[in-house]
């Protein structure tokens, strides 16, 4: 099923950042989000993931199909790698964590506490969570932060496998992942500044 976004307008902190955004994300397709800092990439991903409401427009085919990975990985430092991953696997329906550990080469770290991992290792663990969710659409916000070159290749491989299995991905990133994805530059959709007459709106 395709994710269709029609004439979407989104706001951050009550201020509109993007408007008139229309695109589709087909199964097997990767869409790379580009745009300068503060352009609204994170806000767009959070809106699509259902964490906030759009100002206007329609999002079709997103309900319960999105695996979101934001700036933080949602790891508990006092739980081991396996415990962290098993928790998310059981929240999302109890998939086997073996393939996820293997895809991000976390097997050797399986019994370590997440608090003792390096930043890159934590990120790899955070990304491996996507594999245990079993959700078809990945929404990734700067997934390669603190990853080394080898780990970036590992991640790109995981995305390729996901796409080959009929999944899709929307990735906000500034580096070239070597994926043959379509590039979506959010720059042209920048919202025009409006005089805010609805003062209370910012609080609601």
């Amino acid at each position: 099923m395709t994710l269709t976004v029609t004439d979407l307008a989104i706001a951050r902190g009550g201020i509109p950042v993007l408007e008139g955004l229309t695109f589709t994300l087909e199964p097997g397709q990767a869409l790379i989000l580009r745009g300068p800092n503060g352009a609204g990439k994170t806000t767009l991903l959070r809106t699509l993931a259902g964490l906030q409401q759009p100002l206007a427009g329609r999002i079709d085919g997103a309900e319960d199909r999105i695996a979101y990975a934001g700036h933080s990985d949602g790891l508990k430092p006092t739980l081991s790698v396996t415990e962290n991953l098993t928790f998310w696997a059981s929240v999302f329906g109890g998939r086997d964590i073996g393939p996820a550990l293997e895809a991000f080469r976390l097997g050797d770290l399986a019994d370590r506490h997440a608090g003792n991992l390096s930043a890159g290792q934590k990120r790899r663990l955070g990304l491996s969570r996507l594999l245990v969710t079993g959700r078809p659409i990945w929404m990734l916000d700067e997934p390669t932060v603190s990853l080394d070159r080898e780990a970036v290749a590992m991640f790109a491989g995981a995305v390729r496998t996901h796409l080959a299995q009929g999944g899709s991905a929307l990735i906000a990133t500034h580096i070239d992942l070597g994926l043959d994805g379509t590039i979506l530059d959010v720059g042209p959709y920048k919202a025009k500044p409006v005089l805010d007459s609805d003062f209370d709106g910012g609080f609601l």
Binding site: A49, H71, G74, K76, V91
Partner: peptide, 14 residues
């Protein structure tokens, strides 16, 4: 909230 777990739980099936 701090480690992002709440965001992820909010997008989870729960």
């Amino acid at each position: 909230w701090e480690d992002g777990t709440l965001d992820l739980l909010a997008t989870a099936p729960l």
